[in-house]
Amino acid sequence: MESFLLQIVSGLAIGGVYASLALALVMIYQTTDLVNFSQGELAMASTYLAWVLIGNGVPYWLSFVITLAISFAVGFFLERVLMRRFQKAPLHSVLIVMIGLMVFINGSIGVVFGYELKDFESPFRWLGGTVRGYMSSHEAGIALVTLTVMTLVFCFFRFTRVGLAMRAAAVNPLSASFVGVDVSVMLSLGWALAAMIGAVSGVLSAPIVYLDPNMMLNIIIYAFAGALLGGITSALGAVVGGLLIGVAENLAGAYLVGTDMKLVFILAVIICILLIKPNGLFGRNVVVRV
């Protein structure tokens, strides 16, 4: 029983990482109906940035903030400069561009930093070894940070003028432009926010999976699963889905399929969701254009 609870709690913690990345995916899906395959690699690149900053003596939390700010800017310009060109291109072209972007980031980071695993310190050592025996201090820290980020994101969309405008641009771009919303800026902002939130997931997961150019490959799959489980159109769904997937992964690893088949398990989950309940738990019906 004790170990079962332990699995759940640590699942929730790692689920926080999936939830952030899933939220980043949803953010772009809402505005463009696209799943950004390069989201994980963007997060990975952000994590390297944080690593460089910390390595150069910048205090951890300051590095964290700078990383988020730069990720935001990079996301914004990626949309402006690159994705904008493919706005009217057929879907398969856009997918391929995103996969190309993913490959490009992965390779470039590999060239610059090499492929060996790097240690990434956890900023939560001060929390002590374990919190009441259930969570490692880093897991508690992940939970704390994700919760904060999620709350901020929700407040942004609920209470700010720009947040509301982004939602409007997502649900009805034409009407949004009729009320004076610059829809194209909103699209860029969507990418910017997604890159920023993704960066959170990268920086938080690095102490667990170690830092290397392929660190996000597995995590992005979990984030896919989380976003799909929550319903790819729903931000709240992405968070809940990400957390659930974290728990499910841990439980399946411990009791069902063994740790060496976790990815296969997640693949099965993804396929089941797509076939049985494509709208997920919270998603609205997506109208299929045939």
Binding site: A89, V97, F104, N106, G107, V111, Y115
Partner: peptide
């Protein structure tokens, strides 16, 4: 040249391809 160069080239070529000659 270095590990990762091919991969970076692949990515760049893919994007360039979709951009210039889909």
């Amino acid at each position: 040249v270095a590990h990762g160069v091919a991969w970076a080239l692949f990515g760049a070529a893919t994007i360039a391809m979709m951009w210039l000659m889909p």
